[in-house]
Measured scan of single mutants.
Amino acid sequence: GKELVLALYDYQEKSPREVTMKKGDILTLLNSTNKDWWKVEVKATANDKTYERQGFVPAAYVKKL
């Protein structure tokens, strides 16, 4: 199945390749080969529509579930 990670801290994206997350968010882990930056998929809701974004977050800010 898919691997999930838990956001340990809030993170505000600093570039278009990154994604914003809030502490407590559960994210889908896409790639953890880089030890510093993990690629995740974030589900977000805006205007009653759910959309998914993929991007990088600092590996130290998340932990595998």
Rank of each mutant, 00 (worst) to 15 (best):
V5L: 10
A60S: 13
A7C: 14
L65R: 03
V40S: 00
Y61E: 01
K43Y: 13
Y9P: 00
D48W: 06
I26D: 01
I26T: 05
K49A: 11
G1R: 13
L4A: 06
E3H: 12
K2W: 11
T50M: 10
V57E: 01
S15D: 10
K39A: 07
L8Q: 04
V42W: 07
F56S: 02
R17A: 11
S15R: 09
A60Q: 11
R17V: 09
L27D: 00
Y9G: 04
A46E: 13
E3T: 14
Y51H: 08
V19S: 02
A46T: 12
K35Y: 07
K2N: 10
L29R: 00
T45I: 13
E41L: 14
W38F: 06
K35P: 14
N47C: 13
N34P: 04
K2G: 11
A44P: 07
L6T: 06
E41M: 13
K64S: 07
V57L: 02
P16S: 11
L29C: 05
K14V: 07
T45Y: 14
L8V: 06
K63N: 06
L30A: 02
Q12F: 15
V62G: 01
G24C: 10
E52D: 14
T45E: 11
V5W: 06
V5K: 00
Y51D: 08
Q54I: 14
Q12L: 12
K35V: 10
D10Q: 03
K43T: 14
V42M: 12
L30F: 03
R17S: 11
D48Q: 09
K49E: 12
K35H: 10
A46Q: 14
T50S: 10
Q12D: 14
T50V: 13
T28C: 12
A59D: 02
E41A: 14
M21I: 14
L65H: 05
P16M: 09
L4Y: 15
N34C: 10
P16G: 08
K2A: 11
Y61H: 06
K49G: 13
E41V: 13
G55T: 02
F56H: 04
D10M: 03
W38Y: 06
A7G: 03
Y11K: 01
G55S: 00
E52F: 15
K64I: 14
E41R: 10
E52T: 15
L6A: 05
L4D: 04
N31E: 14
E41F: 06
R17Y: 13
D36F: 15
D10T: 05
T33P: 04
L4I: 07
S32R: 07
V62Q: 02
L65Y: 08
D25G: 03
Y61I: 06
V42C: 12
E3W: 12
K35N: 10
T45K: 12
A60I: 09
L6P: 01
L8I: 09
Q54V: 13
V5Q: 00
D48F: 09
K14I: 07
T20W: 05
T45V: 13
S32T: 09
K23A: 12
T50R: 09
D36N: 13
N47W: 12
N34T: 05
D10K: 03
K35F: 08
K2D: 08
L29W: 01
K49F: 11
S15Q: 06
L27F: 07
R17C: 15
L27Q: 00
V42L: 11
T33V: 09
K39E: 13
L27C: 07
E52C: 15
V19Q: 01
K63D: 05
V40N: 00
Q54R: 12
